[in-house]
């Protein structure tokens, strides 16, 4: 086998092994969206009427509306989790091991990104499975069609995690990431409410939501789940992934970026 693929398999395999060893992480990744779906949505459905908007063709319940947003939420939390584990790796030294491999650094980081995205996607499907048990279902083929969108979203948010991990010096600073990245990204998006609702209350917030790449991950997944294609969302996600990837490579460039601040 080609040397690059040997490394790819080992890095992805290590991510899976770590994932299996951290059952709490899997459970919390699963419980978090379920709490939103089964508790938050139940309380909120009365307050928030969702009219018919694309890609939906009938009235839908609020629970159904937020499923794609919660899928994206899993991708978001996992992306941040992997960035946390990268910072941890750096403090623990296993990052050194990775970066002193003779393979190019971009390839090593890309392998890492693929591994963490694959795990995110698996978790999304576990969540969709449980949602289906509660009768919140999508069209059958929608589950298949959503796969590339989920994976791409996972890559985008994982790349964001890489960028953040190159900026964060210590594990302790991670709480800041929660406050300044995860929450704004999630709430300033179409995950929990359609954007026209946001426009009714504030034009400015609406504009921010429309620019938020996370919104586009949500919409890409939402459309794919209903076997429709949202080109602008796809382009947004692709473009943002490319930008984050470039920033991550810059952050991990040995001549500047993270290592220079303090190895």
């Amino acid at each position: 086998m080609n040397g690059w693929l040997i490394a790819l398999r080992a890095i992805v395999g290590r991510e899976f092994l770590r994932f299996i060893h951290q059952r709490e992480r899997f459970l919390s990744a699963l419980v978090r969206p379920l709490v939103w779906l089964l508790i938050f949505a139940a309380g909120f459905r009365a307050a928030l009427g969702v009219s018919i908007i694309r890609p939906y063709q009938t009235y839908i319940t609020y629970e159904t509306y937020i499923v794609p947003g919660l899928c994206a939420m899993i991708l978001l939390f996992n992306g941040m989790q992997s960035s946390l584990s990268l910072v941890y790796d750096r403090e623990m030294g296993s990052m050194r091991l990775l970066l002193t491999s003779p393979l190019p650094r971009w390839w090593l980081l890309f392998c890492r990104l693929l591994g963490s995205s694959a795990i995110s996607v698996l978790q999304v499907y576990a969540f969709l499975g449980i949602a289906a048990l509660f009768d919140i279902t999508m069209p059958g083929w929608g589950y298949v069609a959503a796969l590339p969108g989920l994976f791409l979203g996972g890559l985008m948010l994982g790349a964001l995690g890489l960028v953040l991990s190159s900026l964060i010096r210590q594990l302790e600073n991670f709480a800041g990431v929660m406050n300044f990245v995860i929450f704004p990204m999630f709430f300033l998006s179409s995950a929990l409410y359609p954007l026209w609702k946001m426009a009714e209350s504030s034009e400015l917030l609406y504009r921010i939501c429309a620019l938020n790449p996370f919104t586009h991950v949500v919409e890409l997944v939402r459309f794919l789940l209903y076997l429709q294609f949202n080109l602008s969302a796809l382009l947004w996600v692709l473009g943002t992934t490319a930008v984050f990837a470039v920033l991550a490579l810059w952050g991990y460039d040995p001549a500047r970026g993270l290592m220079k601040r303090k190895v």
């Binding site: 040397g3 690059w4 040997i6 490394a7 080992a10 290590r14 091991l97 990775l98 491999s101 003779p102």
Partner: peptide, 8 residues
């Protein structure tokens, strides 16, 4: 084995 893979 992980290290070996990193070294192809």
């Amino acid at each position: 084995a992980y290290f070996a893979a990193l070294h192809r």
